[in-house]
Computed example of a mutant assay.
Amino acid sequence: MNIKMGIAKAGIKPSGDYDILVLKFKPSVYSVVLTQNSLAAAPVIYDRMIASMTDKISSIVINSGNANAATGEKGLENTEKMANIVAENFDIDSEQVMVFSTGIIGVQLPMEKVEKGINEACNNMQDLDLKKASTAIMTTDSFPKYYETTGEIDGKQFVIRGIAKGAGMIHPNMATMLAYIFTDVKIDKWLLDKTTKLVAERSFNSIDVDGCESTNDSFLVVATGESDVEINDTNRTYFAKKLLEVATELAKMIVKDGEGATKLIQINIHQARDNKEAKKIAEAIALSNLFKTAMFGNDPNWGRILSAVGQLHLDIDFNKVDLYLGEFLLYSGKPNQFDREKAVEYLKINKEITIDLYFGRGDGNWTYYTCDLSYKYVEINAEYTT
């Protein structure tokens, strides 16, 4: 897959780390899912406009350290200028460029630094290096997030590669994050749009760190069509599963890196009335600060889990509910006798925790990822400006 990248240290981040990333590829079909936050950042507004105008793009530019959110008309002008700088460097139409930003809200971009950084990145293009690219888009992240896989259809291979960022303000729709996935398959835009939406629901729209929805959330999938694999009605399910694999792994990394998090918690809902209900239940548990603090304290307090479900008023018969923490059956229509010391030890020694609930009322299922809520989270966000 012939994707080129350029990175630069423009001086947007106080740390002096890489803060500009430019990616260049052949004109390609794409699908983008953007935040539903009413305080949408300038690049989100701009990208919505681009998405309404063109079915193909050939470049993206990302800055980290400044969200360019709540910046008014000047913010929109600066976003458009970023696209124009890239377009001029590559001699392409600016409508083929999407722009993304992440960082502090309510501060205008230092455009002199941004312009210099974009020009530097465009003049030093190299083959895509997932680790380097993901490093350039980090803000409060403690590690770069990237993942790739391959698939095979009719004896022909295809590739899916992705990068992401995100650590705090994580909550659908989507999670506070940027994520970019690239594949070399041939696929019609309508089918890519449909697949991307489904994948987003099961991955980036099914994670939570702190219940705070961001102004800049963006998930982009680009299909360059460089391979001999063509996605159609007969193989689209397989392709969707491979795309979901990459998105889910990136989403889990975001949750693992939740500010101050010590545990990744997987909440599996089984036998709900339908998938919609299953997701609603999983999200209620994931959003419960009482549950999340119990997990941080290594407390197998099943009451906090069931009370989060009960507050949804879904007319659930709790006499039919089974609740597992790992392999420990904590509740089965009534409090179950379990080895509390071993359950506490399970929470202490494992960085990845599994919760399973069975409701016996249908075939709905959903998986949601969250993390614990620690002292460190409060410290980080008490000292963060805007």
Rank of each mutant, 00 (worst) to 15 (best):
G72C: 08
E77Q: 13
I92C: 04
K74Y: 02
E80H: 13
E80K: 15
I92W: 04
I92P: 00
K81A: 11
G72L: 10
D91P: 03
V86N: 06
A70S: 13
T79L: 04
L76K: 09
N84G: 03
L76Y: 06
A83S: 14
A87C: 14
A87M: 13
E88L: 12
E73Q: 15
S64R: 06
K74L: 14
I85Y: 07
I62M: 12
S64E: 04
Q96L: 10
M82S: 15
V61E: 10
E95S: 12
N68T: 07
G72R: 12
G65T: 10
S94Q: 08
I62C: 13
M82P: 10
N78P: 03
I85E: 01
T79D: 14
G75P: 03
D91C: 15
E73G: 07
G75C: 13
F90C: 03
E73K: 14
N84F: 03
V97E: 02
F90Y: 11
A87E: 15
D93S: 11
G65D: 00
S94I: 00
A67Y: 00
V86S: 12
N66C: 09
A87L: 13
A69G: 10
A69C: 11
V97T: 03
E88P: 04
E73A: 11
N68F: 05
E80V: 03
N68C: 10
E95K: 15
G75D: 02
N68H: 05
T79G: 07
I85G: 02
E77L: 12
N68R: 07
I62L: 15
T71K: 07
V61N: 03
E73C: 08
E88I: 03
D93H: 05
E95T: 09
D93M: 02
Q96P: 01
V86E: 04
T71W: 00
E73L: 14
G65P: 00
D93I: 01
